[in-house]
Amino acid sequence: MLNSSHEYTQVLMGTTVSLTLYEPNETVVHRVFHTIKLLEDKLTVNRRHSEVMSINAAAGKHPVIVSRAVFSLIEQAYKVSLMPNSCFNFAIGPLVKLWKIGFQGQQVPSPQQIHDQLLLTDPNEIELDPKTCAVFLKKKGMEIDLGAIAKGYIADVVKVVLQQNNIHQAIINLGGNVLTLGKSPLDKNGNWQIGLKEPFSLNNELVGIIQVNDKSVVTSGIYERYFTLNNHRYHHIFDPSTGYPLDNELESVTVISDTSLEGDIFSTILYGLGVKKAGNYLIEHPNLSAIFVLKNKTIELVNTDNFAFQLVSQQYVLP
């Protein structure tokens, strides 16, 4: 059994990206980080010449033809954004830029400003042409933002790159998106140990340890990007219907799934549904599992066949 790991890191996508292998392989590491950088350049809204920025720049003017990979991701984001009661909306860009949460100039906008920007966030105002891979935002000022699913998509692509290079035991960590390949060589049961952060912890304490193999673990939480004004906390997970940060009983949602893209999508959707509705949804979708961390310091686990959880925090309880 292998008993030592080799961790490689780079700062990409605004976070520290790490790849853990159990045999050193500089060639594969180079391919992985090169792949991540290429995809980041295509998908980000923080690059002047990315494909997504080209679409946004042409809003209200004309369609933009993009690569098949980018179109496929946009198509998935579009479908999820149109799901009934979906808190996921990839056309939320104008609101994100208005609030600037987590960035310089963050503010609580006026009700009128929020109303005006909401008019530019309707995914029904987006036209997709699968034949030509063209994307058209009908209104000037509209902006799509793939930030909510780009990490998941990229993590899944990295997994394919590793498998193509005959690596079947590894951990990919894209900062909030952790994807495990195969079984851990360090555990007799083959489980990888993934830490779940304690929300708002000053010293990165953990709520608990998630044990999985060959699964994705994605967490969305209100502690990731936020600011406080007049004793009220404003976080980055928006209600697409109101334009304000969602306000419910949850501090974080962690989704355990087969793909990281699913994790990205459903961590947002389940957070928006709240614990009760999300639990009902998950019962009908046993391929997905979730860990809900509540503001009342309790933790709820749903569909535990896909993972094990060990509570380590004294601040939280399992009912």
Rank of each mutant, 00 (worst) to 15 (best):
V275L: 14
I256Q: 03
A150Q: 10
V108W: 02
L38D: 13
S201V: 14
K151G: 09
Y226A: 04
S257G: 09
P109W: 07
T254E: 11
S5R: 13
V66W: 06
S216R: 05
D129I: 07
N165K: 00
S289C: 10
M13G: 07
F200E: 10
I55R: 00
Y22G: 05
F88W: 07
I210F: 01
T228Y: 01
H115W: 13
T15F: 01
T242F: 01
M13H: 05
V255Y: 05
T259G: 00
K37C: 06
I209F: 06
I194D: 04
T9R: 05
L12V: 07
R47T: 10
I149A: 04
T219M: 04
S18R: 07
E262H: 14
L273H: 02
T15W: 00
E51D: 12
V293H: 09
I172F: 02
G60M: 08
T180L: 01
F307I: 11
V253P: 07
M1S: 10
V253N: 07
E51Y: 06
I291T: 12
L250P: 05
I291V: 15
F309A: 08
I114H: 10
I55Q: 02
S110R: 09
I65V: 15
P199M: 06
K79S: 15
K295H: 03
Y78V: 13
I269T: 01
L246V: 15
K188T: 14
K37P: 06
Q10S: 14
Y153S: 08
Q163I: 10
Q10M: 08
K151Y: 05
A91Q: 03
I172Y: 00
I167V: 14
I256N: 02
F71K: 07
Y8A: 07
I210D: 02
H285N: 15
I36Q: 09
F309W: 10
P185H: 02
Q163K: 11
S201T: 15
A57G: 08
Q104W: 01
G182K: 01
A150F: 07
T35P: 01
D214C: 03
S201R: 09
Y226V: 05
K61I: 15
Y153G: 07
T259S: 13
Q113D: 14
R31K: 15
I36F: 09
N89H: 13
V28S: 05
S81N: 14
A77R: 02
L179S: 07
N213T: 12
R47E: 12
L39A: 09
D122W: 04
G105P: 02
N287D: 13
G141T: 11
I114R: 09
L229T: 08
Q314N: 15
L128K: 05
F227S: 04
N124I: 10
P123A: 10
L294K: 12
S313N: 12
P123H: 09
T121K: 01
M13R: 03
V161I: 15
T121S: 08
L294I: 11
Q310C: 12
V158Q: 04
L12R: 06
Q314Y: 00
A290I: 10
D214Y: 00
P240Q: 05
M53W: 04
E205L: 10
L181D: 03
H62C: 13
I171W: 00
T259C: 04
R225Y: 07
K61N: 13
F292R: 03
I126V: 15
T121G: 02
S86K: 03
N248S: 06
N173A: 11
V312C: 09
Q107H: 04
G190E: 04
E40C: 11
L246K: 03
I154M: 12
Q76P: 00
I92R: 00
V66G: 10
T304W: 00
K183C: 08
G272C: 09
